[in-house]
Design a protein around this nucleic acid. Structure first.
Lengths: 221, 221
DNA sequence: CCCTGTTTCCATCATTTGATGGAAACATAG
DNA sequence: CTATGTTTCCATCAAATGATGGAAACAGGG
């Protein structure tokens, strides 16, 4: 039962957010009384915290699995496979994306129960992609690119209902197009690392060229 | 006063979301009684609706302004300028990004007051970029790429607090790195349109395109 | 069966929250 | 000043919500 509650709480919190979810909604979805819920998980904030830890744990497991499969391949191939696997996985548990994005964007009225830190796996991903030489001390620009990449996936999964309606497409079609769009955007972007040889940082101003705007060199801090 | 309420409501709704915001929070922030708020805007859902319409109107105005400035330039230049302007603008009104993303990701318990449709400017942007030949009947893949592009910007602005804390960086530094990251990812991706000539759709498996030669000139730093 | 510990539900509270009616304050034209 | 329309605040409600105590149901070992 404790597990069942966590599972349903993940889904409901993922759909409605923290304040949009009531303990009664969760209990009713399972068909139990709310006091049973409180018995197992304590107050609402504690349950939410458990949900967050749970999804990050799932995500970590998946990332490790993917890392082992794409290990050793070329960057383009690695990204292609990783995008396929990651997308398929997240569409099976879309609340993972929703909950992560809520954390990024939303403030809560709660004192500070929910502001605990969770690793964002940024360095792990960069390392797995072969972009980081060293698991620690990742330069800022690389960390931001990793965030950008993950966000791109999260967005299409978390917003699937809205976007499917907006684009007037079926689910199957949508999933395929998400993968294609991700590849269209991410692979050329990160292909710059392949072309630029191993670790030519190339400043952030990639792609524009010319213009030589006044940006100073900003070597990795 | 009516305007002042709308302005503050934008900010608070943007920070806490619909259910995370109470009418009392808005009223208190201004220093008025909640009944004054209800007098001007009716029920909470109506105020929220007004907020959404307001931010979309602002966004529309800005997009038109940008469109006129980048008109006629090359795609890379257009994107460079548009990213600069759009980012600067959104960082001044970050609640725009938050509110748009909430609409994408969050469900509300409300009956259906907030499910009204608002244009997402997808076709306008594609047309302005010179990617769409025809303002109507945009193919699905192009619309998704436009969404992906806008989402990329929205995310970094809406999540600025979280990301700045995560990356341990200052605001100024963060803003600059957002621009650089956006250019790093978006410009190479959409440069495929330039290289591929005018309208070679190219199937979704765009990842292969990056391998060919790639960008010729690379401003040696 | 009985005893004990666990789990579930019912009844109930105290707050919070959305919402409103009506009195007071304010403004403005005549 | 007075009359009229507008705006703001005070007091208050009803419903929703987070939370809890205690009785009942359940489970398993002796």
């Amino acid at each position: 039962m404790k597990g069942k509650i966590l599972e349903v709480a993940r889904r409901i919190f993922g759909e409605y957010g923290f304040h949009g979810t009531t303990t009664r909604m969760i209990a009713q979805e399972i068909g139990i009384d709310i006091s049973t819920l409180y018995y197992h998980w304590g107050e609402k904030g504690d349950l939410y915290e458990a949900v967050i830890l749970d999804i990050y744990e799932d995500l970590r497991t998946k990332l490790i699995e993917i890392e082992q499969i794409v290990h050793g391949k070329s960057l383009s191939t690695r990204m292609d496979t990783a995008i396929e696997m990651m997308t398929d996985y997240l569409f099976l548990s879309p609340e993972i994306c929703n909950l992560i994005l809520f954390r990024y964007f939303t403030r809560t009225r709660q004192p500070s129960n929910l502001d605990f830190r969770v690793p964002e796996f940024i360095s792990e991903i960069a390392f797995s992609m072969g972009i980081a030489k060293d698991r620690k001390h990742l330069p800022l620009d690389i960390r931001m690119r990793m965030l950008a990449m993950m966000n791109q996936i999260y967005n299409f999964v978390a917003g699937q209902n809205f976007f499917m309606d907006l684009l007037k497409t079926t689910r199957e079609d949508y999933v395929q197009n998400v993968k294609d769009t991700l590849k269209f955007i991410l692979i050329p972007a990160f292909a710059q690392y392949e072309r630029a040889g191993k670790h030519h940082d190339g400043n952030g101003d990639a792609g524009t060229m010319g213009e030589g705007d006044g940006k100073k060199e900003e070597t990795a801090p």
